[in-house]
Design a protein around this nucleic acid. Structure first.
Lengths: 225, 225
DNA sequence: AGGCATGCTGTGAGGACGCTGAGAGTCACA
DNA sequence: TGTGACTCTCAGCGTCCTCACAGCATGCCT
């Protein structure tokens, strides 16, 4: 997660950088409005922490211009003012959140995380192993560039195996997750569906992604076979 | 914009309802955590204003459960506590913003608007997939240059599919968004309307924009078929 | 090698799923 | 009151999926 911190007071700016880096963010600094605007325009930031009182271009203006240019990077404003109307103003020029100085670092981080969580739509990541990919959103499976049509059951089995790529998954585990059979399912169904899967994602490509571990279960090769 | 306000103190609850209605929101009230959770689960709200101190289920728990159920409706928490750690806690259970009592109504509304603006990502004026376009402003749908007349329901279904172009949308999801049936709608209506849509935007053009994903739902091809 | 356990696969029945035409109910409007 | 547009239910049909079964192949042990 890359952050841009626009803050003219050097001591605070450096404290923020160190603190945020310790929290695992990559941090760039800008010390005035012009520079902040320039960097923010170049994009690539997941969020911007923007002081209101800046030499040259104020934080309000920076935010306003970004929004006018259709740049919707999440912005968290910082200000010494704390009148309620100032806050409302900040939010009205398009900031996503607002903190008044002095603020607590803990709160800053919590609010930043909330902002980032909201900005990144909860789109589940694409699962992959080598050139085998599965996109839960579109429910599409591919071997390289080839789309591979799977039935609902086949898809469910593959998804489970991919989520545990490299690990052995027992048949009863698969039964529980895909068939929600509690204990008394016939493991042969699993064998049948593993067979179907292999015929679609392995055999035509001369690969061996789905491996049998005799007596234990199946393992999806982490490199896709 | 529909809001759910979960607040047990009747005077405050009614004041909020009146004030927010005056700002143009449609407001539902819940007076305890259980009821709030139930209503929020049913969906259909654009945001939830959630008091922390509630009889029965606390606001923290309500929010936590919603998130655990993958319900990402924007939540603004209200609390009398104002320790910084309480705030961080609130944000950590998945709230999107946090106000401490006593709060200013002006700030509440400004923050709500910021929340809603964030939740509704800046929409491109026109939704499109390949040469299939839908302009929400004029409610005009076109295949290439041809205008395609759609009924209200057909339009609503297509809009939903276009907003999630490339992703699989389940029938129950469509039922919830277009019919606001909560759980018990008959999925056949969806099948019927998908049929109507196809006869208007696909069949006459020999295209296949609306794809069936057996056992999962429908997907609008990102390239318009 | 022999015997047993484990895993694989072809076949086919039954059923779930999705699509469609017919028609009833509702509403707005002339 | 009649007409037309729209919405939705229902039942029938075809397709595809799922799964049980049985025979076969393979691996492992004595």
């Amino acid at each position: 997660m890359r952050l841009l911190v626009v803050e003219d007071e050097a001591r605070l700016a450096n404290a923020l950088r160190r603190g945020l880096q310790a929290e695992g963010f990559a941090v760039d600094l800008a010390s005035d409005g012009e520079q902040g605007l320039r960097l923010a325009r170049e994009g690539g930031y997941d969020a911007v922490v923007l002081d209101v009182m800046l030499p040259g271009l104020s934080g309000y203006r920076v935010c306003e211009r970004l929004r006018a240019e259709d740049n919707w990077v999440p912005v968290l404003m910082l200000s010494a003012k704390d009148g309620e109307y100032d806050q409302a103003d900040g939010l009205d020029v398009g900031a996503d959140d607002y903190l008044t100085k002095p603020f607590s670092f803990v709160v800053l981080v919590a609010r930043l995380r909330a902002l980032l969580r909201r900005a990144a739509p909860p789109r589940p990541a694409v699962l992959s192993a080598g050139d085998l990919t599965l996109d839960p959103a579109s429910r599409q499976v591919r071997r390289g560039a080839d789309p591979v049509p799977l039935t609902a059951r086949e898809y469910a089995v593959l998804e489970l195996l991919l989520r545990r790529a490299g690990q052995v998954v027992s048949k009863t585990d698969i039964l529980r997750h895909v068939w929600d059979a509690h204990d008394d399912g016939d493991p042969n169904v699993v064998e049948v569906y593993v067979g179907y899967l292999r015929r679609k994602i392995d055999t035509p490509y001369g690969r061996r992604a789905v491996q049998t571990v005799r007596g234990a279960g199946y393992r999806l090769a982490a490199d896709g076979g």
